[in-house]
């Protein structure tokens, strides 16, 4: 699908969101799946309130805080990368993307440590309903973080080779939009699974 977004002069609104329109259709499909997941979690909890509240207390909120801050920060770095390429600064764009990837690595490391802790305690998908949702929801999101990092790495590689310019940087905006979606989903997942009871 061809790019439909052009950067308009200040003050003018665009007809389409930044990036390739195909990624937005993909993003909406992904968001719909996560919405179903969230609603299913909430309605399953409705019939198991005590169980969900009890085991939610066992989760590591410090790790979740670090991960939330990591994703918000990485999203900000990606915004800076897009701003840089819109000014034609490819190498600055690459640096911001690498910084965002660094935050992604931090997220994966912290989440992996959390999983390691759970698995060493004998917790798995069949432990109870809460852990079934917690593990499947967070792992599904974990896979999206990896996917987002692969996309950002590919964009950074192309930017490093001078593959984007002021006139043609749809690829950077496309990767950025996907990464923001990953952040967006976590911003709902974090309070729902770790805090709300």
């Amino acid at each position: 699908m061809t790019a439909l977004t052009q950067t308009n002069p200040a003050g003018q609104l665009n007809r389409y969101p930044p990036g390739d329109l195909a990624i937005w259709i993909f993003i909406l499909a992904e968001l719909a799946v996560f919405a179903i997941f969230f609603a299913t979690y909430a309605f399953t909890r409705m019939n198991n309130v005590e169980l969900f509240n009890q085991f939610q207390q066992h989760l590591d909120r410090d790790a979740a805080l670090i991960n939330t801050l990591a994703l918000i920060t990485s999203s900000y770095f990606v915004v800076r990368a897009v701003a840089a390429i819109r000014e034609g600064a490819s190498q600055i764009c690459v640096r911001w993307l690498l910084a965002a990837l660094g935050m992604g690595v931090l997220f994966l490391a912290v989440k992996s440590a959390e999983y390691g802790h759970h698995f060493s305690a004998g917790i798995n998908l069949s432990t109870n309903s809460f852990y079934m949702f917690y593990l499947s929801l967070t792992f599904f999101h974990f896979m999206h973080v990896i996917m987002g990092m692969v996309i950002l790495a590919a964009v950074a590689l192309k930017a490093r080779r001078g593959g984007y310019s002021i006139e043609d940087h749809t690829g950077v905006e496309t990767g950025a939009s996907y990464w923001h979606m990953v952040d967006l989903v976590w911003l709902i997942l974090f309070p729902l699974v770790y805090v709300m009871h």
Partner: peptide, 9 residues
């Protein structure tokens, strides 16, 4: 602000 949808109509 991050996805830039405030600049979309």
């Amino acid at each position: 602000y991050f996805m830039g949808l405030n600049r979309v109509q």
